[in-house]
Amino acid sequence: MHPVRRQRLFFILFIVFFSSVAVGLMAFALRDNINLFYPPSMIVAGEVPLDRRIRAGGCVRPGSVSRDRETLETTFLLTDGIVDFRVHYTGILPDLFAEGEAAVVNGELRADGGFYATQVLAKHDEKYMPPEVAETMAAVSDGHDESCEVVQYGS
């Protein structure tokens, strides 16, 4: 390769490399802000601000969802399999919200340890299959969100 062209090539590689390093360091420094939500472990450990709008995410603990017939209030537990916290929400839940599936909630954590959500989002997985296949699969695994499949619901 002609020396001038090689020099230009190095210039380009230099630009790509150093802009990658710069952006990489920025992303690393801001990693807590880039995460859309806090995991249950941080909520329970009190590592999140109280009474401020935050998002939290986890798996909806099977059997923990209870709906109040009159006030439309729903409460459920979000868990990572080790710790969980209670979410209170009044309103319509998304179609894909279900026990054993992942959800992201938007709201405030209060001093009583309860999370008061104004919005509940369902987080679905990257698996797609026809209903018949899912039924036969259910015999093998419970067919839940992969991130929630490994969770041991115990007790």
Binding site: I12, V16, V23, L121, E126, K127
Partner: peptide, 25 residues
Amino acid sequence: LIGTVNIPIIYKSVDWWHTLHQPAT
């Protein structure tokens, strides 16, 4: 050329951070 940094970030974002978007199929 500077913007190429963004492509692997887009691709890996769902694995590196907690996101609402599901991982790649």
